[in-house]
Design a binder for these strands. Structure first.
Length: 269
DNA sequence: AGCTCATGGCGAG
DNA sequence: TCGCCCTGAGCTG
């Protein structure tokens, strides 16, 4: 689940359920027990997301830094909370709600200064109002690395994962292997603006949909389809299936330990 | 029951 | 580039 849109949605949902309350804080699994004891009964004052990093603010200066990694999951529910299973790293629970965090790469109690250093090593996030796309382009334009790899580099741009990278490159007809230095300013501007729209939609829908209205199965007179990860996409995980636009087989290849997907006809340059 | 794979990222070599 | 960390679903037997 976790690309940037998921994390921003989680920041909203944690706030909606717990901001202004002082929940019980526990770590049934045990790995976060010491910090949980320190936070138990403290007020959740605010939440924040930057890229794939989630921050839960307690009191004035305590932050819980959460990164879901590839496997992390968050589950909300209404009180009464059921007995936690033994993989729950962090549970918040109050009179009306509970939320369980499982399998995160990171769940740590940090200071304001430590939080600042996390922000400093992340690039601009299309979902944050303070984001500066020019800062990202400054890195892209002087890099020989492929645009596909650059889009996954959180120091360059924060929040894009394997789905958004594949889909946004398809939507702009960009060959994923093109070096960053050959991406024009106009192309970057278009990609960035598109990501802002796609990722905002992702926060709202809590899933990734990238297919334009004119390319839906209905619009193209084809039978309805369901992509197996819950959103409607052009190329992600569609290896060897026909491109929705031109019918060419979608290709896949490993790139930096992840699977890349693209249409060799629609993304020729 | 065991294997593979997954929308991530780190550090060692 | 590889191995490793975190978990669970969907296969295969």
């Amino acid at each position: 689940m976790p690309e940037g849109h998921t994390i921003h949605r989680l920041a909203q949902d944690y706030a909606a359920r717990f901001q202004g309350t002082a929940p019980r804080v526990t770590s049934p699994q045990g790995k976060f027990s010491d910090a949980a004891d320190l936070l138990d009964g403290a007020e959740l004052t605010r939440t924040e997301a930057h890229g794939k990093h989630l921050f839960l603010g307690f009191r004035d200066t305590d932050w819980v830094h959460i990164h879901l990694g590839l496997f992390g999951k968050v589950a909300f529910g209404d009180a009464p909370a059921p007995a936690p299973t033994d993989t729950v790293r962090l549970r918040l629970a109050d009179a009306t709600s509970y939320v369980d965090l499982r399998g995160p790469t990171t769940c740590a109690l940090i200071t304001e200064a430590e939080k600042r250093s996390v922000h400093e090593r992340l690039g601009p996030d299309p979902l944050r109002p303070d984001a500066d796309p020019a800062a990202a382009y400054a890195r892209v334009r002087r890099s020989r690395t492929t645009i596909a790899a650059l889009l996954m580099d959180q120091k360059v741009i924060a929040g894009v994962g394997n789905v958004y990278r594949a889909e946004v490159l398809f939507r702009h007809g960009i060959d994923p292997y093109r070096p960053g230095r050959d991406i024009t300013a106009a192309e970057w501007q278009a990609v960035w603006t598109d990501l802002v729209g796609l990722m905002r939609d992702g926060v709202r829908a809590n899933r990734i949909d990238t297919v334009r209205p004119e390319h839906t199965p209905e619009a193209m007179g084809r039978p309805p389809r369901v992509d197996d990860h819950g959103g409607e996409v052009y190329v992600y995980r569609r290896a060897a299936m026909p491109c929705h636009i031109c019918g060419t087989e979608i290709r896949t290849a490993g790139l930096a330990a992840r699977n890349l997907f693209w249409c060799p006809a629609c993304q020729r340059t």
